[in-house]
Simulated scan of single mutants.
Amino acid sequence: MSENLKRLTGQGVSIWLDDISRERLRTGNLEALIRDKQVTGVTSNPTIFASALSKGDAYDTQLRDLSVRGVDVGEAVRAITTFDIRWAADVLRPVYDATKGVDGRVSIEVDPRLADDSAEKTVAEARALWWLVNRPNVFIKIPATLDGLPAITQALAEGISVNVTLIFSLERYRAVMDAWLAGLEGAKANGLDLSTIESVASFFVSRFDTEIDKRLDKIGTPEAVALKGKAAIANARLAYAAYEDVVNDPRWQALEAAGARPQRPLWASTGVKNPDYPDTMYVDQLVTAGTVNTMPEKTLDAVADHGNIDGDTIRPGYEQAWNTMAELKQAGIDYDDVVKALEEEGVQKFVASWDELLGTLETELRKAG
């Protein structure tokens, strides 16, 4: 077992795998990662499922059955994805039990085409996934769009555990935390056991650097270029500072006294996009207790091999983070425009991934028929 991964979990960071496939499940690979690589959770998305479906024969029997039954592609995608999520939830159930429900979690995403649609539709989709998976250790992923915020509140108020995804801006993150608190307050008013309702807030990291680096290159001054690769870490650290403000607020403390548990910050998109950057930077530089880092396996292996885990790297970096943000503004970076572009692009990518999944599934159903 890697000493680096032991050190990371020893600092209070939960390691989750940003991948799932039936092949991983049937071969025992996920169990091995739990045993050997400190993995305590799994996140999924439509791109991951599309990739899994297009490789190997793990889905052949179910695809043939679905084809024989003549189900439409919408029903088929839910049948296949929820099967895998249930299986992964069962594999992770011992972790869930050992951590009293904090970890051992598996995330499945609502139809991303609803991201800018009505909250009512998103909540209906969240309920359907919650019922279909029917495991206490599932997270329903809801995007943090403006239309997603009331859906987050409603889902939590009904006792549905939520992974809030697609967060880029500090302002939106604060709105997410407000939606989370309102949801817990609703759950309390509904007489629910708050200790059974978990949530994480997925703050996207590497995409932030990708977008800002592109703009810094366009500006082209030495001062601008020197700031490349610094924005994402700074943004994430300031997100954690915002989180600390909320958990020190009497509003949260009243819920905590009633049995509620924190909405942990989750660092998502932690695979490095720029090969010039250290491949573990979005792990090494975002270490503090009570957080989650969901990694693609390549990043997990890199951290295990040569990660530099050396204590808390978030709280001591607050002043540096504020300075970086001020320098970016001075260089000509419009933060509000950056996060707006990233959210719009993120929703478009989610929808494109969903369409890819549906297309892949249609192809596989025809082949199975």
Rank of each mutant, 00 (worst) to 15 (best):
M1P: 03
E3H: 08
N4W: 06
T9R: 07
G12S: 10
I15P: 00
W16R: 04
L17S: 04
D18P: 02
R26A: 10
G28Q: 13
A32C: 04
A32N: 12
L33H: 01
T43D: 00
T47Q: 10
S51N: 14
L53G: 09
L53Q: 12
K55W: 07
A58Y: 11
Q62Y: 03
Q62G: 03
Q62I: 04
R64C: 08
R64V: 14
S67G: 15
D72I: 15
A76V: 10
V77A: 10
V77S: 06
R78T: 14
T82C: 04
A88M: 01
A88I: 04
L92H: 00
P94W: 13
Y96A: 01
V106W: 02
V106A: 07
S107R: 01
I108P: 15
E109Y: 02
L114W: 10
A115C: 05
E120S: 09
T122W: 13
V123E: 08
A124C: 03
E125T: 06
E125K: 04
R127E: 14
A128C: 08
V133D: 07
I140F: 06
K141W: 00
P143R: 12
A144R: 07
T145Y: 11
D147L: 13
P150H: 13
A151E: 10
A151G: 11
I152M: 12
Q154M: 12
A157M: 03
A157I: 05
G159Q: 05
G159Y: 02
I160N: 07
I160F: 06
V164P: 11
V164T: 15
I167E: 00
F168I: 12
F168C: 11
L170W: 13
R172Q: 12
M177W: 14
G183H: 08
G183C: 09
A187Q: 07
N190A: 10
L192Q: 07
T196F: 04
S199I: 10
R207W: 06
F208W: 09
F208C: 05
E211K: 07
I212S: 04
K214W: 14
R215L: 10
P222K: 11
E223P: 03
A226G: 12
L227Y: 08
K230V: 13
A242F: 01
Y243I: 09
P250T: 08
L255Y: 08
A258P: 14
A260M: 05
R261D: 05
A268P: 02
S269H: 01
N274Y: 14
N274K: 09
D276K: 13
T280G: 05
M281Y: 05
V283K: 04
D284W: 10
T288H: 02
T294F: 00
M295F: 02
E297K: 03
K298V: 15
L300S: 12
A304D: 09
H306V: 07
R315G: 05
G317S: 00
A321I: 02
W322V: 15
T324G: 13
T324C: 15
M325E: 11
A326E: 14
E327G: 12
G332T: 07
D336G: 01
E345I: 10
V347C: 03
Q348Y: 15
F350N: 09
A352Q: 11
S353I: 07
W354C: 00
G359K: 06
G359Q: 08
G359C: 04
T360C: 03
